[in-house]
Amino acid sequence: MTNFFIFSDVDIIQQIKLSCQIPDIIEAIATRKIIADSADKAGIKIEKGELQQSADNIRLNKKLIKSEDTWIWLQKHYLSLDEFKELARINLLSEKLANYLFAKQVEPFFFEHQLDYAASVTYEVVLDDEDLAWKLFYALQENKISFPEIARQYIQDPELRRVGGYCGIQHRSNFRPEIAAYVFAAHPPQILKPMITQEGIYLIWVEEIIQPQLNEPLRCKILGDLFSAWLKQQLEEVKILVQLEQ
C-alpha cells in the first residue's frame, strides 16, 4: 500500500456524489448566489474596513488567535487567502442583506410573538402511577415532602436525579402544548397538578417564569430566523439547473 494518495477534483466530486451530499451543496451554492444577487440589487456595498472586521469575526468564532492558527485552518480546509476573503465577504453580505430586509420588522415581530419567547425554569418527575402522583402532589401542598426528595426517590435517570429533576430554562416550544399552557399560566414558585400524557404522569414544579426582553442576542436570533425563512422561500421559487461532467 502506498504511503500517500493524490486526489483530483473528479475524485472529490465523485465522493460528494456517493455521500449523497449533492443536494445540500447545490442548495448552498444557490443560497450564496441569491444573497449576492439580492445584495447587488439593493445597492449594498462593502468597505475595506468592514471586510477586515468580518474576517476577524470568522477567526474569533473559529478561535484562530494567532496568524499561524489561521494558516493551519486554511490548509486543513484547502482554502486560499483569497477564498477566505470571499468567505468573509459572503458572511458580511448576508448580515447586511438581513438588516436591509428585516431590521425594521424585528421589533413588531417580537411583540406579535412575545409569548413564544417567554421562558420557564422547571423541575419535573414523570411517574407511571396516577394515584401516587396525586398523593405526592398533596404531600407537597402540605409541606410533608420536598420536590428534591421526590426526585431522589422516583427519578430513574442518575444524572437527572442528581439535579433534582431540573430541566433548565425552556421556552414554550420545548413543552407539549397541553403542558405549556399550564406551565406559563403558573404563579411561581408553584407545584402544578399532575398531568397525564402518553409518556406518563408529569409532576412539575415551576420555579420561575422569565418574561422576554428584546435584548441584542434575541434581536439577532429573530433577525436570523426572518432571514432564513426568506432564503427558504427564495430557494423554493428559483429554478436550478445543474451541469456535472460525467
Rank of each mutant, 00 (worst) to 15 (best):
V125P: 07
Q156R: 02
V121L: 13
E159C: 01
N99Q: 14
E124K: 10
A151K: 09
L101E: 00
Q153C: 07
A118V: 11
E112N: 02
Y100G: 01
F110R: 00
N99M: 13
R152K: 09
W134Y: 11
F109K: 01
A133R: 13
K135Y: 13
N99H: 15
F109W: 11
Y100S: 08
F111K: 02
I150L: 14
E159L: 04
Q156I: 04
E107T: 12
D131C: 05
L140Q: 13
A119M: 14
E112R: 07
A103P: 00
E130W: 08
P158L: 06
Q114R: 10
F147L: 10
F109P: 00
I155R: 03
V106Q: 01
I150Q: 09
L127R: 11
P148K: 09
Q141Y: 06
Y138M: 05
P148N: 02
Y138I: 03
K135Q: 13
F137N: 01
A98N: 02
R152Q: 09
A98G: 03
L136W: 09
F109Y: 10
E130R: 10
F137G: 02
D116Q: 13
F109S: 04
R162K: 12
I150S: 10
L101W: 00
I150C: 10
Y123D: 04
Q141H: 03
T122A: 01
F110T: 00
L115A: 14
Q153A: 14
A103D: 12
I155F: 07
F109R: 00
E130A: 14
V121Q: 05
V126A: 15
N143T: 08
A151H: 06
L160C: 08
F109M: 00
L132N: 08
L97R: 09
E124H: 15
Q156C: 04
E95N: 06
L101D: 00
L140R: 08
K144I: 07
F110Q: 00
E149A: 11
D157L: 04
A98T: 01
E130I: 15
A133Q: 08
R162P: 01
W134N: 11
E142Q: 09
P108G: 05
N143R: 12
A119R: 15
I145C: 08
F147P: 12
L136V: 07
P108N: 02
F102C: 00
K144D: 07
D128Q: 14
N143F: 10
W134M: 11
D129K: 12
P148Q: 06
K104Q: 15
L132S: 14
S146E: 05
L160A: 12
Q114A: 03
E130P: 12
N99V: 01
P148E: 03
E107K: 14
Q114V: 03
K135F: 10
E95R: 09
V126Q: 15
Y117F: 13
Q153K: 09
L115G: 03
R152P: 01
L136N: 03
A151G: 12
E107V: 02
K104W: 08
Q114W: 03
Q141E: 06
A98W: 00
L101N: 01
D129L: 08
V121R: 13
H113S: 06
F102K: 00
A98F: 00
E124A: 10
A103I: 12
Y100D: 09
L115E: 15
D131Y: 06
